[in-house]
């Protein structure tokens, strides 16, 4: 049962190895003649006069929070979907209620304008 996941783990290891190999080849085979101008952050020829890690729009943050909530809902739907046919009508009704609650929350978010980008 768990042994089936061993190739998956190996695959992740191979992928990490591939990434490291490519990076190392690039670092070794590539030329390296750094100058101050070359290493400066790219800003279309302007000199960067302050740190780029500035304040950003709160809507990105809001989207991330909403994503977590909705992604959790999807994670709840996964087991339900898998055993749905064994549970019959109760599962259908319950998930109808669950989706209804989800839709109410979604409608609230929509109404509040959290999804607006102007």
């Amino acid at each position: 049962m768990l042994a089936e996941y061993w190739p998956v783990l190996l695959f992740i290891a191979v992928a990490i190895g591939l990434g490291i190999a490519l990076l190392v080849i690039g670092l070794l085979a590539g030329t390296s003649r750094p100058t101050a101008e070359k290493l400066a952050p790219y800003e279309c020829g302007f000199e960067a006069f302050e740190d780029a890690r500035m304040k950003f729009d709160v809507r990105y943050y809001l989207i991330a929070i909403l994503f977590i909530i909705f992604d959790l809902e999807i994670a709840f739907l996964f087991p339900w979907a898998t055993v749905f046919s064994d549970l019959g009508v109760i599962a259908l009704v319950e998930m109808g209620l669950f989706l209804l609650l989800l839709v109410i929350g979604f409608a609230y978010v929509w109404k509040k304008g959290a999804l607006e980008w102007e």
């Binding site: 992740i12 992928a15 591939l18 990434g19 490291i20 590539g30 030329t31 952050p41």
Partner: peptide, 25 residues
Amino acid sequence: LIKEVILPTNSSKFLYYLAPMLALV
């Protein structure tokens, strides 16, 4: 592969090299 890999002055070195790996893996 034979081009220079640039590490910008103000960047965070470890994260800068970790990011492409996290995309690839």
